[in-house]
Design a binder for these strands. Structure first.
Lengths: 152, 152
DNA sequence: CCGTTTATTGCCAACATTGGCAGGAAGCGC
DNA sequence: GCGCTTCCTGCCAATGTTGGCAATAAACGG
């Protein structure tokens, strides 16, 4: 099990939210998915446990989970939002625009930049699941063409 | 005028796209909006010039403009995507989660981090309009450290 | 346990965005 | 200019997501 049942219940209660059967099913579904799970998959998986579950409930639950830092949401730009159980150490993702592959990068790479932003603008960055687009190592090797020409 | 009429026409032609009345109206509407323009505003403004213009056309044109680097898109997380004429030097945005205010930051702040990503992962980041969420200077003063003068 | 209070749910409608399709127009060679 | 080819547009349907509303159930005090 990726999450401790008591843990999320307490997080919710402490934040003033109620612990419901639906929310349990939903957070289980996120865990079951492993890494990044698109909402559709969370919904499908949760529906198997509770066939009356509504999509709105999943959306609302996931948004709330994000607010209390139980899960992180990432928009990879393909039209769907992906969810993932929040790990103690936050991380970010690189998404290749060419082949669509994803890889994780460590938060430490960004911390220096965040600190600089804070120094220069007094702004504390709280983005804990950034998605950076670009081109992965493999795709770079094979592409001699300009990006625009290869796109379609 | 923020954009040179001939410029965008040539960019489109060179990329193998056609120059149409609709696209002209749309890029004018983006320019007229100044900085960040939500799609709805681009649409509304463009409709005034051409009442038969369809929403899909605006979406498609803006996506294409983004691909040929005439425009940059930014998702600030409020449900709408914002568009902006691409400036020679790319920049990014800080959005305060508390008060919703936005400020620009320079690309140079991120370049070091991008270089590091490239070194460690062989991944070339091509994100040229990042939106970082967090808390602005003003909001930090009143929330992180509830001073004597603070709420209640 | 039982009732009260109020967050939450399921249903439904609305909004933002994308994709398919047939008619229309841009670009090009004549 | 004229016609051909192909891209683009407008219309419509579908998908992803959010919000309103009445019924329901969690949390809490008696």
């Amino acid at each position: 099990m990726t999450h401790d049942t008591l843990l999320w219940e307490n997080v919710l209660r402490r934040a003033g939210h109620r612990v419901t059967r639906q929310r349990g099913v939903i957070i289980d579904a996120v865990c079951a998915g492993g890494g990044h799970v698109p909402l559709g998959e969370v919904y499908a998986r949760a529906r198997r446990q509770d066939p009356t579950l509504d999509r709105s409930t999943v959306y609302r639950a996931l948004r709330m989970f994000t607010e209390v830092d139980l899960v992180v949401a990432a928009d990879t730009g393909d039209g769907e939002t992906y969810y993932e159980i929040k790990r103690p150490q936050s991380h970010h993702h690189l998404v290749c625009r060419r082949c669509g592959c994803e890889q994780e990068i460590d938060d430490s790479l960004l911390q220096a930049m965040f600190a600089q932003v804070s120094r220069q603008h007094g702004f504390t960055v709280a983005t804990d699941h950034l998605v950076l687009f670009g081109q992965c190592a493999a795709c770079q090797g094979e592409s001699t063409m300009p990006r625009s020409a290869a796109a379609h």
